[in-house]
């Protein structure tokens, strides 16, 4: 780390190779788009390299990198707000079997998650996917604990509401079929 801070490219490349997969997984889960998440990771790592001399506490490298990544994801999401997504419109299917039901659950979760703001998504990803405590999420994202709690609460509530609405629509669709 110290060598990387002093400008050793090879040392930083080793850090990159150790962090890239983790960052890619997080970015994909926030943005739900492979191309954009890879773009976000690239921008994050290049920014990290450029700004590394300003990192005062090398022990906080991971938290600092997470914060850079999340900010890059925010910008990515806003820049491409109206970009045509490759995700097709998902159509409701009546639950016919357990397997179909599981697929639909995933589709419902995907739709519900896409309704969240990118800020809410980031909190959910760090808490549910990375397994960070809310205090750690607050530290890694650089936002107050109260904001983390409020985003987690509102994000979960929005997803539940979306899932409930989906379930009602599916029941209604099944009746009319």
């Amino acid at each position: 780390m110290t060598r990387a801070i002093l400008g050793d490219e090879a040392a930083f490349e080793a850090l990159v190779r150790g962090s890239a997969d983790r960052l890619a997984a997080i970015a994909y889960r926030i943005l739900r788009d492979l191309a954009r998440s890879e773009e976000a990771v690239q921008k994050t790592l290049v920014t990290a390299w450029r700004e590394l001399p300003g990192l005062r506490d090398p022990d906080r490298f991971d938290a600092w990198l997470n914060r850079l990544l999340v900010n890059t994801c925010y910008a990515e999401a806003r820049n491409s707000r109206r970009w045509a997504s490759e995700v097709a419109v998902l159509h409701m299917l009546p639950a016919a079997s357990d397997e179909t039901s599981q697929v639909m659950d995933r589709d419902q979760l995907e739709r519900g998650f896409r309704r969240l703001s990118v800020e809410q998504r980031a909190v959910l990803v760090f808490h549910y996917y990375e397994g960070l405590t809310l205090v750690e999420v607050s530290d890694h994202l650089g936002i107050p604990l109260g904001t983390v709690k409020s985003r987690l609460h509102s994000g979960v509530a929005l997803m539940r509401a979306a899932l409930d609405a989906d379930a009602r629509a599916t029941r209604s669709g099944s009746r009319s079929a």
Binding site: E9, F12, E13, V16, R17, A20, D21, L23, A24, A25, Y28, R29, L34, E38, V41, Q42, L45, V46, W49, D105, R106, L109, E110, F113, L124, V125, Y128, Y129, M159
Partner: peptide, 24 residues
């Protein structure tokens, strides 16, 4: 939610990694 989030890519593609290193 945890199960759903666990599902999905977990690696940066070799092409993206190579591009990143080159840009750095």
């Amino acid at each position: 939610l945890r199960d759903w989030l666990a599902d999905g890519p977990t690696r940066l593609s070799p092409r993206a990694l190579a591009e990143t290193v080159s840009e750095i």
